[in-house]
C-alpha cells in the first residue's frame, strides 16, 4: 500500500499473441496486452466476445491454444492455477457452503500453511476492509448477495495477490447495490494498490471504474483506451454502438452535413435541437430533419430525428427548463440539429 511510486511502474500482466479455440470455435483470436501494476483494467464486451476466456486463461483455468501469459515478467503459461500469484472473484462467488465466512476467508492462508493466529488476524483485517467484521461465524447461505460478494472479495484479497481477477462480480446484484459496489470497488482498489482485471458487459460499469478499458468483439480487442477517449473517440462502429449509442452518419448524409465522405458518429448529448428557423452558427454542423419519436426519461428527453439528408440521429436533451409538454409536442415537427464539428468522430468502417 505504502510502496513508493517508483516500485509500481512495472508490468503486472502481459499477454502475447494469446489464442484459444474450443474445437472449431475460436474464442480468443490473438490478444496482446500489457497491464501496468496498480491499474484498474476492464475487459468489456458482449457475451461470447472472449473476455471471460482471457480472464480464465490468466487465472489458469483454461490452457491457451497459443501464446504466452506473463505475470510480473515471469512466463506462467503452463502453470496450474494454484501456482500463480493471482486470485479470482467468481461470478457466482463460489463460496464454500460448508465453511463459515471466516473459514472461507482463511482458506488461502491455511493452504499456504500460515499459522492459526496470523490467519485469524489477517482474515479479520480482510473482513474489516470489506465492512463485514462480526460476520465471521455465519455461513454463506445466511448472507445477502451483496454480503457474499464482499466475502468473495475478502477471500481473494487476504492473499495479497499481484493481480485480482473479477469475473462479472456485480452481475447478480440489483442496480442500486451495483452502483454502490462500483464506487466501493474502485476505492478499495485505490487503497490496496493491486492490479484489478475486471470483466463486464456493462459499459457504464466499465466507464465508472476503469483506468483503461479493452473492448472485446469476436475474440479480438476492438479498442484499448481510457474511459473518456473510448466514449468520445470510438475507433469503430462496434465500439461506438457498444459504449453508448452508435448514432452513425454515413455516405451521402455525411457528405451533405459534414462535408466529407466517410462514417461519423455523434454522441446524442452533444447535439442541440432547435426550431427549424434558428440561425446557423459558425463552427457547428447543421442538419435539418423531422422528429419521429420523443421519449421522456425523467432527467432527460430522448428524441429520434429523421434527417432530410438520410438516416436518423438520437438526441438527448437535459430537462433543465421549458415544459415537458412542449418537448413532447415536437413529434412530427421540423427541427434543426447542430453540433460542434469536432464532436462528429470519424470511425474506421462499419
Amino acid at each position: 500500500m505504502s510502496a513508493p511510486v517508483e516500485e509500481r511502474v512495472g508490468t503486472a500482466v502481459s499477454l502475447r499473441g494469446l489464442r484459444k479455440s474450443f474445437g472449431e470455435v475460436v474464442a480468443v483470436d490473438g490478444v496482446d496486452l500489457d497491464l501496468a501494476e496498480g491499474e484498474f483494467f476492464s475487459m468489456l464486451g458482449p457475451s461470447g466476445s472472449g473476455k471471460t476466456t482471457v480472464l480464465r486463461m490468466i487465472a489458469g483455468f483454461e490452457e491457451p491454444t497459443a501464446g504466452q501469459i506473463l505475470l510480473g515478467g515471469v512466463d506462467v503459461t503452463g502453470r496450474p492455477p494454484y501456482a500463480r500469484d493471482v486470485n479470482t472473484v467468481f461470478q457466482d462467488y463460489a463460496l464454500f457452503p460448508h465453511m463459515s465466512v471466516l473459514q472461507n476467508v482463511e482458506y488461502g492462508l491455511r493452504v499456504k500453511g500460515v499459522d492459526r493466529r496470523a490467519r485469524r488476524t489477517q482474515a479479520g483485517e480482510a473482513l474489516e476492509t470489506v465492512r463485514l467484521s462480526g460476520f465471521g461465524d455465519r455461513k454463506p447461505s445466511q448472507l445477502s448477495g451483496g454480503q457474499r460478494q464482499r466475502v468473495a472479495l475478502a477471500r481473494a484479497l487476504v492473499n495479497r495477490p499481484k493481480v485480482l481477477l473479477l469475473d462479472e462480480p456485480l452481475g447478480a446484484l440489483d442496480l442500486k447495490l451495483r452502483r454502490e459496489m462500483q464506487l466501493e470497488l474502485k476505492a478499495l482498489q485505490r487503497d490496496v494498490g493491486i492490479t484489478f482485471v475486471f470483466v463486464t458487459h456493462d459499459q457504464e460499469e466499465a466507464l465508472t471504474m476503469s483506468d483503461r478499458i479493452a473492448v472485446f468483439n469476436g475474440g479480438r480487442i476492438e479498442q484499448l483506451a481510457g474511459p473518456a477517449e473510448l466514449y468520445e473517440r470510438p475507433a469503430t462502429a462496434f465500439v461506438a454502438g457498444f459504449v453508448g449509442t452508435s448514432n452513425l452518419l454515413a455516405d451521402d448524409a455525411a457528405e451533405a452535413i459534414i462535408g466529407v465522405p466517410g462514417v461519423f458518429t455523434v454522441r446524442p448529448e452533444k447535439i442541440r435541437l432547435q426550431p427549424a428557423g434558428a440561425p446557423a452558427e459558425p463552427g457547428r454542423c447543421t442538419a435539418l430533419g423531422v422528429v419521429r419519436e420523443v421519449v421522456y426519461l425523467g432527467a432527460a428527453t430522448q428524441s429520434v430525428v429523421d434527417l432530410d439528408a438520410g438516416g436518423s440521429l438520437l438526441v438527448l436533451q437535459q430537462n433543465e427548463g421549458g415544459s415537458v409538454q412542449d418537448k413532447l409536442e415536437l413529434r412530427g415537427a421540423q427541427v434543426r440539429l447542430t453540433w460542434h464539428r469536432e464532436h462528429a468522430v470519424e470511425i474506421g468502417g462499419q
Binding site: 487465472a59 489458469g60 483455468f61 496450474p80 492455477p81 494454484y82 493471482v86 486470485n87 479470482t88 467468481f90 461470478q91 457466482d92 463460489a94 463460496l95 464454500f96 482458506y107 488461502g108 493452504v111 499456504k112 477471500r155 481473494a156 492473499n159
Partner: peptide
Amino acid sequence: LPNSLLEASADLGAR
C-alpha cells in the same frame, strides 16, 4: 457441486 468451487479452491492455492 458447482465447478467454480473447485476452481476457487485451486485459485486459492490448493492442490
